[in-house]
Every structure is written in structure tokens, then in C-alpha cells.
Amino acid sequence: MIFRQIVVIMAISVAFGIVSNIVSPNKIPFFGHYRSLSSGDGPIVPPTAEEGDPPFIAIDVAEMEFSNYDAVFVDARDPEEFECGTIPGSINIPFEYMPDEGLEAYIDSALGDLPREHQLIVFCSGEECDLSLHLGRNLMMLGYTNVAVFFGGSREWEKFGLEMERQVRCDE
């Protein structure tokens, strides 16, 4: 009796789960792609980090977001560095070229019609570069509510053997 009830509840749950995931606007693939890249060190957090900054994420979280979800990666470096190699699909918003006036229009046009609550992951080259942190702070200031900083940046991404997108061939 108990066993039959358990089986029935589980079967109904599976059926509802399958149907709801097919019709849901927030559906996910039934089989995700997850690898563990963690070096066990957790996210790299710069010493300049302050209270209220966007959260810092580790390489494994960045890779999980990249592989499974529609997070938008934002490269805060100069266009020249962006073209030399970046995380595939990233949008380039060079922090050093950001205008003093009309910042909101500049960022909105770079990000297209992205809703303010969409997951954004900001990065630059790595630990010596804090453009990502500054850009992340600006994005939060402009009302983007789901911003994270991947402080390991493109260098850590490449170090872990993950795919890079290169528009031009550059010497190191």
C-alpha cells in the first residue's frame, strides 16, 4: 500500500515535471552539462573589494553559467584585447572608454534590450585588472540587479582549457 502510494506520487511528479518544463518560459535542458573545474580555492576576490560590491564567482561557477544558462558575459577590456581572445559570445563594454555623460544609454545600447534582472557576468583579463569590478559597480548603479564578477577573467578561463573566441591573431 505504502509502496504503491510512493510510486504513484513519484510518477505524477515526473509527469508534471516533464510537462511543466516543456511549457515553462523558464525551461531548462533535461540533461545539463556540468564539470567540476574547482581548484578548491573559491572565487578570487580583489583586495579592493568593498561591501555592496557584486558577488565574485569562481571559474567553476562561471563555466556552469556559460554551459547551462543564458548568462551574458561582459568583457570590460579594450577592444584590442577583446579581439585577441575572450570568452565566446561575450559583449565588449570597454570600461576605459565609457563616457562621463550618457553612461546609461551607452551601456543599454551595448547590452541591447536585455532586461535589468538578466544574469550578467563581468570579467577582464585577470587578477591584475580591476576593470571588471568597476564596470560591475556601474552596472549595479544603473539598476542591473543580477551582476557577478568573474575576477579570474580570461586568463583563468584559458588556463582551465576552456574555449576562447579570437577575432585576430595576437602575439603574447
Binding site: S13, V14, G17, S20, I28, F30, F31, H33, Y34
Partner: peptide, 13 residues
């Protein structure tokens, strides 16, 4: 990893 999304879809129901 292969089971994560399946569990996420079925467990809440």
C-alpha cells in the same frame, strides 16, 4: 552533473 537538471525538474513537484 547529468542528474542535476532532472532532479531540478522533478523534485519540486
Amino acid at each position: 552533473g547529468a542528474l542535476i537538471n532532472l532532479i531540478a525538474v522533478f523534485l519540486p513537484w
